[in-house]
Write a protein that binds this DNA or RNA. Structure first.
Lengths: 203, 203, 203, 203
DNA sequence: CATGAATGAGTATTCATTCAT
DNA sequence: GATGAATGAATACTCATTCAT
């Protein structure tokens, strides 16, 4: 029977359906406005099932973020671990960032915005240590290390690498949000890289 | 006696107390998580009083945004209308932006993030035209016009002025959020201006 | 000065304005849905003024009912005290009823419907004795007495006079509510009288 | 065990418990004064449960009315479709009316009185067509058709059938409200029929 | 007397979470 | 494991009433 797919298969599938639906709904509505009802409707499952896989709404959100972030971080680490020069690494990372945010712009916007509210509660309740902030910053951290490398190599002006990384990161995000990168990702990546390295002033 | 301020004085004060409390709570919690109860507790007033001055929670939020934004826009317009060159105007605006966001970073983050949710309802209900989006973009618009002026003057590379304005804006905001501008506003403004005009690459 | 009309005059006028506005609003919205705010808007006065003349919303409603009812009861009593025969008296009363309800149909509908809710509270609170019910029934009582007189005179079939009075009364009210009496009060009065005395069956 | 009734059974029961409680509370307090809190207290259920079965207070009220009205209308239609003569049909309907209003007098009073307030909002909002009015008038309509039939048969005086139906209906209701039908339903039905057909005047 | 700013008790509704089947 | 009926804490908003001017 169609109904007799192995238990494991079905379960795995339910879990993924829920995560996919959650990604959509959290992206569209934000964390607090998203409802479990809307998620299960999209995931075509029952309410109890969500609570079988995730202990509560917040855990669902956190795991979603973590599972989306992991391969992105891996890609960045791979670039960082490569043999080429800092400038090349930075440009490569910039493309990875752009691709990732084109895919997850709304979800990450939610993460950035609602982190605070989520962690305030956690921190107050149990002295936790900002796990959302950690996920969010991890990507920028790798970029930051590579910028520092560029300074060591003497190709980038000495400056606060973290500050620089955040600036670069914010420009990427902004371009995505404003829609400038939607259909011209490569052109945009080059434009950002050029402005970042060379500035906008006519010399 | 302090307690015998005239009713008029007290009334004016109630409205301002509510707006001040609303600014705090909306900044901290975001629009949807903010509660009227928390606002009145901070404002030291009754629930009905809020509804005497503002027809509902959303109107309170909108008026708050509008009243904060107005003097900021005026300051930018004053700079734009001045006699000096584009580069000077841009640097001056950058300081104004930085000062404004140091004051209102969290509230503006809320505005940017929750605009969508607020306007979807409005637009669906009555075909309104995005009044939050309008408030939010107005500042960047002025900056954008000034960048375009710089291109005319030949001091800034030809490019999409709006895109540039958003990029610059996002960097400002990012610096504020990361706390780099908290106690070093001027240093930060200069660093941003320098990176923006000249880039980060060693020539 | 225009402003120096005698104090008494002005006060009386405010009181009447409030009562007139209250009549409109209570008629349209019912007792519980009517708001003091709407009444003062229509009466062109301040909220405090209402509470100067009437101790609370309920008292305002009660006094309104009482003052409307008094001349109506007087007119019925005048007919009852007259010299003519029962049938004539009944027909005359029927016209008075019709005229009164054409004027006050909605307000009396409210009275009849919301009496219960108003008096339950009162009775529970202070052992009062149904003052609304009293106002409402007083008109029917006079009609009932006159029907009993008709029975004595032998022109009306022996029956429960009160029951008959309520039946007649209800028909009058129904005709008014259904709008059959709006522009044809006299025709309607005759039609009711005829059906009441002679029945609808073909003999 | 009584406690282990199947979930389906219990669910059906919850819905009915809520409707029964709603009937009581709406009857006693009217639509606007009735509170969901009082309904759930009487229904021995939680607040959320009400909203699982009915989308809001108004829908609860409407469905209550509709489900009460349906079998009543069916009974009237059955009589109308029968083989006997108009006068017999009318008398039979009169008993059905009386029985129905003895059961639902207060709820129907509420319907009649608050229809207006409920439909004004609806009509303004979405151009709806008066669903309460429709439920309310449907019974009188059937009676009206049967009266018209009596005129065709030549046993009832030619007249406006609708007007007559409303008059008869109002008398029935009035008798119920005044309590004359409480323990003497049959006697009352006959008295009404007699007065209606033959009038009250001594011939 | 007339006024209206201030107030808070009361109400409909939403939504995360539980748990029996 | 999967399900969804039941639940109540939380929240925006209304409106009669008070009282200082």
């Amino acid at each position: 029977m169609a109904r007799s797919r192995s238990r494991t298969e079905k379960s795995a599938s339910k879990r993924e359906q829920i995560l996919a639906a959650a990604a959509e709904v959290f992206s569209q509505k934000g964390y607090f406005r998203a409802t479990i009802d809307e998620i299960i409707a999209k995931a075509d499952t029952g309410k109890g099932t969500v609570y079988n896989y995730f202990s509560n709404k917040e855990e669902l959100f956190y795991i979603l973020i973590k599972e989306k972030n992991a391969p992105f971080l891996q890609a960045l680490e791979d670039i960082a671990a490569g043999e080429c020069h800092a400038l090349e690494k930075i440009t490569a990372m910039l493309r990875v960032f752009l691709a990732f945010y084109l895919e997850n712009a709304d979800l990450w916007r939610v993460l950035m915005h609602e982190m605070r509210g989520l962690e305030d509660e956690k921190l107050a309740a149990e002295g936790g240590q900002g796990r959302y902030r950690q996920e969010f910053h991890s990507g920028v951290d790798i970029l930051s290390r590579t910028l520092a490398l560029g300074m060591q190599e003497g190709v980038i002006k000495e400056n606060d690498a973290r500050r620089m990384a955040y600036a670069l990161f914010s420009v990427i995000l902004s371009m995505v949000y404003q829609g400038y990168a939607r259909d011209r990702a490569d052109e945009t990546a080059l434009a950002i890289a050029d402005a970042f390295f060379n500035g906008v002033a006519v010399k």
